[in-house]
Amino acid sequence: MDSAVRLDEVWKSYKNEAVLRGIDLEIEYGKITTILGTSGSGKTTVLRIIAGLEAPDRGSVSINGKLVSREGRILVPPHRRSLGFIFQDLALWPHMTVYKNIAFGLEVRHEKGIRQKVEEIADFFGIKGHLKKYPGELSGGQQQLVALARGLVLNPRLILMDEPLSSLDVMKKAKIRQVIKGLIHKFSVGIIYVTHDHKEAFELSDHIVVINNGKIVERGTPSQLRESKDEFVKDFLSLY
Protein backbone atom coordinates (compact mmCIF):
# COMPACT_ATOMS: atom_id res chain seq x y z
CA MET A 1 0.00 0.00 0.00
CA ASP A 2 1.19 3.49 -0.82
CA SER A 3 1.88 5.79 2.08
CA ALA A 4 -0.73 8.48 2.74
CA VAL A 5 1.66 11.34 2.25
CA ARG A 6 5.20 11.31 1.05
CA LEU A 7 7.57 14.29 0.89
CA ASP A 8 10.80 13.96 -1.07
CA GLU A 9 13.64 16.47 -0.55
CA VAL A 10 11.27 19.38 -0.03
CA TRP A 11 12.86 22.83 0.09
CA LYS A 12 11.10 26.11 0.70
CA SER A 13 12.31 29.63 1.28
CA TYR A 14 10.66 32.98 1.93
CA LYS A 15 12.47 36.13 0.90
CA ASN A 16 15.73 34.24 0.32
CA GLU A 17 15.63 32.65 3.72
CA ALA A 18 15.40 28.87 3.68
CA VAL A 19 12.60 27.61 5.89
CA LEU A 20 12.69 23.97 4.85
CA ARG A 21 15.95 22.34 3.85
CA GLY A 22 15.29 18.97 2.29
CA ILE A 23 12.46 17.37 4.18
CA ASP A 24 11.81 13.64 3.58
CA LEU A 25 8.73 12.34 5.25
CA GLU A 26 6.26 9.47 5.02
CA ILE A 27 2.96 9.41 6.82
CA GLU A 28 0.51 6.54 7.17
CA TYR A 29 -3.23 6.40 7.48
CA GLY A 30 -4.91 5.41 10.69
CA LYS A 31 -2.25 7.00 12.84
CA ILE A 32 -1.57 10.30 14.49
CA THR A 33 1.73 11.71 13.38
CA THR A 34 2.96 14.78 15.21
CA ILE A 35 5.37 17.26 13.80
CA LEU A 36 7.11 18.73 16.81
CA GLY A 37 9.26 21.80 16.73
CA THR A 38 9.92 25.22 18.17
CA SER A 39 8.29 28.25 16.62
CA GLY A 40 9.99 29.22 13.40
CA SER A 41 11.27 25.69 12.87
CA GLY A 42 9.25 25.31 9.67
CA LYS A 43 6.67 22.85 10.97
CA THR A 44 3.65 24.88 9.83
CA THR A 45 5.19 25.24 6.38
CA VAL A 46 5.36 21.46 6.06
CA LEU A 47 1.65 21.31 6.76
CA ARG A 48 0.80 24.05 4.28
CA ILE A 49 2.84 22.34 1.58
CA ILE A 50 1.06 19.06 2.21
CA ALA A 51 -2.27 20.88 2.05
CA GLY A 52 -1.36 22.49 -1.24
CA LEU A 53 -1.70 26.02 0.10
CA GLU A 54 1.91 26.50 -0.95
CA ALA A 55 4.17 24.83 -3.45
CA PRO A 56 7.63 23.50 -2.54
CA ASP A 57 10.51 25.31 -4.24
CA ARG A 58 12.26 22.02 -4.80
CA GLY A 59 11.28 18.42 -4.19
CA SER A 60 7.91 16.76 -4.50
CA VAL A 61 4.81 15.79 -2.56
CA SER A 62 2.67 12.72 -3.24
CA ILE A 63 -0.61 11.71 -1.71
CA ASN A 64 -1.69 8.08 -2.08
CA GLY A 65 1.21 7.58 -4.42
CA LYS A 66 -0.01 10.35 -6.71
CA LEU A 67 2.24 13.33 -7.33
CA VAL A 68 0.40 16.45 -6.11
CA SER A 69 3.11 19.15 -5.92
CA ARG A 70 6.48 19.44 -7.51
CA GLU A 71 9.22 22.01 -8.05
CA GLY A 72 7.27 25.18 -7.42
CA ARG A 73 4.04 23.86 -8.94
CA ILE A 74 0.80 22.69 -7.43
CA LEU A 75 -0.43 19.81 -9.56
CA VAL A 76 -3.53 18.94 -7.53
CA PRO A 77 -5.38 21.81 -5.86
CA PRO A 78 -6.02 21.64 -2.09
CA HIS A 79 -9.66 20.61 -2.26
CA ARG A 80 -8.90 17.59 -4.48
CA ARG A 81 -6.42 16.18 -1.99
CA SER A 82 -9.10 14.80 0.30
CA LEU A 83 -7.75 16.68 3.30
CA GLY A 84 -9.21 18.54 6.22
CA PHE A 85 -7.32 21.46 7.71
CA ILE A 86 -7.78 22.79 11.23
CA PHE A 87 -6.14 26.18 11.49
CA GLN A 88 -4.36 27.52 14.53
CA ASP A 89 -6.92 30.23 15.18
CA LEU A 90 -9.64 27.99 13.70
CA ALA A 91 -10.63 30.47 10.96
CA LEU A 92 -14.32 29.92 11.46
CA TRP A 93 -16.31 32.26 9.24
CA PRO A 94 -17.70 34.83 11.65
CA HIS A 95 -20.61 35.87 9.43
CA MET A 96 -22.02 32.35 9.05
CA THR A 97 -23.91 30.26 11.58
CA VAL A 98 -22.38 27.06 12.87
CA TYR A 99 -24.66 25.17 10.51
CA LYS A 100 -23.48 27.22 7.52
CA ASN A 101 -19.86 26.85 8.56
CA ILE A 102 -20.16 23.10 8.52
CA ALA A 103 -22.41 22.92 5.46
CA PHE A 104 -20.33 25.29 3.33
CA GLY A 105 -17.99 22.68 1.87
CA LEU A 106 -20.91 20.36 1.10
CA GLU A 107 -22.83 23.16 -0.56
CA VAL A 108 -20.01 24.24 -2.83
CA ARG A 109 -19.60 20.59 -3.85
CA HIS A 110 -23.34 20.38 -4.53
CA GLU A 111 -23.70 17.27 -2.37
CA LYS A 112 -27.02 15.73 -1.48
CA GLY A 113 -28.50 15.34 1.97
CA ILE A 114 -26.56 18.21 3.41
CA ARG A 115 -28.80 18.80 6.40
CA GLN A 116 -28.60 15.19 7.47
CA LYS A 117 -24.83 15.05 7.17
CA VAL A 118 -24.38 18.28 9.11
CA GLU A 119 -26.70 17.15 11.86
CA GLU A 120 -25.00 13.78 12.13
CA ILE A 121 -21.57 15.21 12.55
CA ALA A 122 -22.79 17.94 14.89
CA ASP A 123 -24.37 15.24 16.95
CA PHE A 124 -21.11 13.33 17.12
CA PHE A 125 -19.28 16.40 18.38
CA GLY A 126 -22.08 17.36 20.73
CA ILE A 127 -22.76 20.73 19.18
CA LYS A 128 -26.14 20.02 17.66
CA GLY A 129 -27.75 22.52 19.98
CA HIS A 130 -25.56 25.33 18.66
CA LEU A 131 -26.21 25.02 14.93
CA LYS A 132 -28.12 28.28 14.71
CA LYS A 133 -25.54 30.28 16.65
CA TYR A 134 -22.69 32.31 15.25
CA PRO A 135 -19.11 31.30 16.11
CA GLY A 136 -18.71 34.46 18.19
CA GLU A 137 -21.43 33.21 20.53
CA LEU A 138 -19.62 29.98 21.40
CA SER A 139 -16.93 29.16 23.94
CA GLY A 140 -13.38 28.35 22.83
CA GLY A 141 -13.90 24.61 23.26
CA GLN A 142 -17.14 24.65 21.31
CA GLN A 143 -15.48 26.62 18.50
CA GLN A 144 -12.81 23.94 18.45
CA LEU A 145 -15.43 21.27 17.93
CA VAL A 146 -17.08 23.27 15.16
CA ALA A 147 -13.74 23.54 13.40
CA LEU A 148 -13.27 19.76 13.70
CA ALA A 149 -16.78 19.13 12.42
CA ARG A 150 -16.19 21.46 9.51
CA GLY A 151 -12.96 19.67 8.67
CA LEU A 152 -14.46 16.19 8.90
CA VAL A 153 -17.82 16.62 7.25
CA LEU A 154 -16.26 16.32 3.80
CA ASN A 155 -14.99 12.82 4.68
CA PRO A 156 -11.30 13.53 4.21
CA ARG A 157 -8.81 10.69 4.56
CA LEU A 158 -6.29 12.88 6.29
CA ILE A 159 -6.69 15.74 8.76
CA LEU A 160 -4.03 18.39 9.14
CA MET A 161 -4.04 20.24 12.44
CA ASP A 162 -1.95 23.34 13.07
CA GLU A 163 -1.63 23.80 16.84
CA PRO A 164 -5.40 23.72 17.21
CA LEU A 165 -5.40 23.63 21.00
CA SER A 166 -3.08 26.53 21.68
CA SER A 167 -5.78 28.86 22.92
CA LEU A 168 -7.54 26.43 25.28
CA ASP A 169 -7.14 25.88 29.01
CA VAL A 170 -5.72 22.63 30.40
CA MET A 171 -9.09 21.02 31.13
CA LYS A 172 -10.49 21.65 27.70
CA LYS A 173 -7.25 20.63 26.03
CA ALA A 174 -7.46 17.21 27.65
CA LYS A 175 -11.06 16.82 26.58
CA ILE A 176 -10.46 17.77 22.96
CA ARG A 177 -7.39 15.55 22.83
CA GLN A 178 -9.65 12.62 23.69
CA VAL A 179 -12.00 13.65 20.91
CA ILE A 180 -9.13 13.80 18.44
CA LYS A 181 -7.89 10.37 19.45
CA GLY A 182 -11.37 9.01 18.92
CA LEU A 183 -11.48 10.33 15.36
CA ILE A 184 -8.97 7.77 14.15
CA HIS A 185 -11.39 4.94 14.82
CA LYS A 186 -14.65 6.64 14.12
CA PHE A 187 -13.64 8.15 10.78
CA SER A 188 -10.63 5.98 9.99
CA VAL A 189 -8.55 8.96 9.02
CA GLY A 190 -4.90 9.81 9.39
CA ILE A 191 -3.95 12.87 11.38
CA ILE A 192 -0.95 15.10 11.04
CA TYR A 193 -0.70 17.20 14.12
CA VAL A 194 1.64 20.18 14.42
CA THR A 195 2.63 21.40 17.86
CA HIS A 196 5.45 22.88 19.89
CA ASP A 197 4.24 21.14 23.06
CA HIS A 198 6.10 17.85 23.50
CA LYS A 199 3.76 16.69 26.26
CA GLU A 200 0.86 17.00 23.91
CA ALA A 201 2.87 15.18 21.29
CA PHE A 202 3.70 12.30 23.58
CA GLU A 203 0.18 11.92 24.81
CA LEU A 204 -1.42 12.02 21.39
CA SER A 205 0.92 10.53 18.85
CA ASP A 206 1.67 7.20 17.33
CA HIS A 207 4.61 8.73 15.60
CA ILE A 208 6.61 11.91 16.21
CA VAL A 209 8.80 13.86 13.82
CA VAL A 210 11.05 16.50 15.38
CA ILE A 211 11.93 19.35 13.12
CA ASN A 212 14.51 22.03 13.76
CA ASN A 213 15.75 24.81 11.56
CA GLY A 214 14.07 23.36 8.48
CA LYS A 215 15.43 19.86 8.90
CA ILE A 216 14.12 16.69 10.45
CA VAL A 217 16.39 15.87 13.36
CA GLU A 218 14.64 12.85 14.76
CA ARG A 219 11.67 10.55 14.14
CA GLY A 220 10.08 7.60 15.80
CA THR A 221 7.48 6.47 18.30
CA PRO A 222 7.25 8.38 21.58
CA SER A 223 9.25 5.73 23.39
CA GLN A 224 11.94 5.71 20.72
CA LEU A 225 12.17 9.46 20.99
CA ARG A 226 12.77 9.37 24.70
CA GLU A 227 15.96 7.42 23.94
CA SER A 228 17.16 9.90 21.34
CA LYS A 229 20.86 10.76 21.27
CA ASP A 230 20.31 14.01 19.40
CA GLU A 231 21.41 17.00 21.48
CA PHE A 232 18.60 19.23 20.28
CA VAL A 233 15.96 16.63 20.99
CA LYS A 234 17.35 15.99 24.44
CA ASP A 235 17.37 19.68 25.24
CA PHE A 236 13.93 20.20 23.83
CA LEU A 237 12.36 17.35 25.75
CA SER A 238 13.93 18.39 29.04
CA LEU A 239 12.60 21.89 28.87
CA TYR A 240 9.42 21.27 30.80
Partner: peptide, 10 residues
Protein backbone atom coordinates in the same frame (compact mmCIF):
# COMPACT_ATOMS: atom_id res chain seq x y z
CA UNK B 1 -6.72 31.33 7.11
CA UNK B 2 -10.31 32.50 6.75
CA UNK B 3 -9.84 32.33 2.98
CA UNK B 4 -7.68 29.21 3.08
CA UNK B 5 -10.31 27.37 5.07
CA UNK B 6 -12.70 28.02 2.19
CA UNK B 7 -10.10 26.84 -0.32
CA UNK B 8 -9.71 23.63 1.66
CA UNK B 9 -13.47 23.18 1.62
CA UNK B 10 -13.28 23.25 -2.14
Amino acid sequence: PIKEAAIMAG
